[in-house]
């Protein structure tokens, strides 16, 4: 680097997605996709409810959390009423579509196409009684936390 005061650029990131709500999944996906667009190596590691993002039967039905989400600025009681989460999810998806943000299934596939690694957390897979077959084909492997750290070597780890 010619300018010694300039910090070294980021060359690799490993992003952990641990939540299964719409607002819990998107940020990690956006960061992974953005990393690849900058030529940064990226791995995605799905753990706990974040596994829903790569679950064949579930990833098309990810919902926005309307309870316990003060950012929505709606009364918690209202957020818990039947159908409210579905309605708010629908609204959010519609807004994102207008901005040309892909749906979660499409986005995950797109990120895999960029060459990012996709892994499921073994402890969570065991906990939920899942197997490799439950996940979309883009998932390369089910790995332990130790294997995750090996793959994350030399880069930054981002937990979402």
């Amino acid at each position: 680097m010619s300018d010694s005061t300039k910090p070294d650029p980021i060359t690799k990131v490993s992003i952990i997605i641990s939540k299964g709500s719409l607002e819990g999944i998107y940020p990690g996906l956006i960061m992974a996709n953005g990393a690849r667009a900058e030529g940064i190596e990226a791995n995605l590691f799905f753990t706990f409810f974040g596994l829903d993002a790569i679950h064949k039967a579930r990833h098309d039905h990810i919902k926005l959390a309307t309870v316990g989400n003060p950012g929505l600025h709606m009364p918690t009681m209202a957020g818990g009423l039947p159908g409210v989460s579905t309605m708010m999810t629908h609204y959010m998806n519609h807004k994102m579509e207008q901005l040309d943000i892909p749906s979660i299934p499409e986005f995950v596939e797109m990120i895999a196409d960029t060459g990012a690694g996709m892994y499921a957390c073994k402890a969570s897979v065991d906990l939920f009684g899942l197997e490799k077959n439950d996940f979309i084909d883009q998932v390369q492997d089910i790995i332990t936390v130790g294997e995750f750290y090996e793959r994350a070597a030399g880069g930054h780890i981002i937990f979402t």
């Binding site: 690849r36 667009a37 900058e38 030529g39 797109m110 196409d113 960029t114 060459g115």
Partner: peptide, 13 residues
């Protein structure tokens, strides 16, 4: 395609 784009321009298409 996205896949081809990253093959053509590995450092970010």
């Amino acid at each position: 395609s996205i896949k081809e784009l990253y093959q053509l321009f590995p450092k970010g298409p």
